[in-house]
Simulated scan of single mutants.
Amino acid sequence: MDIINIHQAKTHLSRLVEKAARGEPFIIAKAGRPLVKVVPLDQDLPAPADRVGFMAGEIGVPDDFDRMGQKEIEALFGVDGT
């Protein structure tokens, strides 16, 4: 397995990534010390989970939600609720 120094990896990144994707992994080193191993992905990445509606049926909103605490809020502002 090839060991590539970090400067060389930055200079030839596209070529090195193509090489790894073809099944030829390599190691990136800094000052001669191995840091990371670049290998091809063996499988497709999982699709992100759908977030819209993920809690459907889990939360209930009261019918008077838009009026909850109305009297207390009006009292704070000195508004007569009549």
Rank of each mutant, 00 (worst) to 15 (best):
D44S: 14
P62Y: 02
A47D: 14
P62C: 00
D42E: 15
E18W: 06
M55N: 11
A56C: 10
D66W: 12
P34G: 06
R15V: 09
D2N: 11
A20L: 06
A20M: 02
L16G: 00
G32M: 06
E72N: 09
V36F: 10
V38L: 04
L13K: 05
E74K: 12
L41W: 10
I73C: 11
V36I: 11
A20E: 05
P62H: 00
G60F: 11
K37W: 05
E58N: 12
G60K: 12
A75P: 03
N5F: 03
H7V: 15
K30L: 08
V79F: 13
F26T: 02
G23C: 03
A21P: 02
A21K: 05
K19W: 04
D63F: 07
A56N: 10
R51T: 05
V79H: 10
G53N: 01
G23R: 01
D50Y: 08
Q8N: 07
A75F: 13
I3G: 03
I3H: 09
I27L: 01
F54I: 09
F54N: 14
D2H: 13
A20N: 02
L41M: 14
L13I: 09
I28A: 03
L35A: 07
I28N: 00
D66H: 15
A21E: 08
A49K: 11
D80G: 07
A9K: 00
K30R: 09
G32P: 00
Q8T: 15
L35P: 02
P34Q: 05
T82Q: 09
A49L: 14
T11S: 14
G69P: 02
V52S: 14
I27G: 00
M68S: 13
L41C: 10
F54T: 10
A56M: 13
P25A: 05
Q70Y: 15
V38A: 00
I3T: 15
D42H: 15
L35S: 07
G81C: 08
E18S: 06
V38P: 00
D66M: 14
R51V: 06
E74I: 07
Q43R: 15
F54E: 14
H7S: 15
D44L: 10
H7D: 15
A49W: 06
V38Q: 02
A21S: 07
G69I: 03
H12R: 13
P48R: 13
K71F: 14
K30E: 04
K37L: 11
V61R: 01
P62A: 01
A9T: 04
D50L: 12
D66C: 13
D2W: 14
V79P: 09
F65I: 01
M55W: 10
I73K: 10
I59H: 04
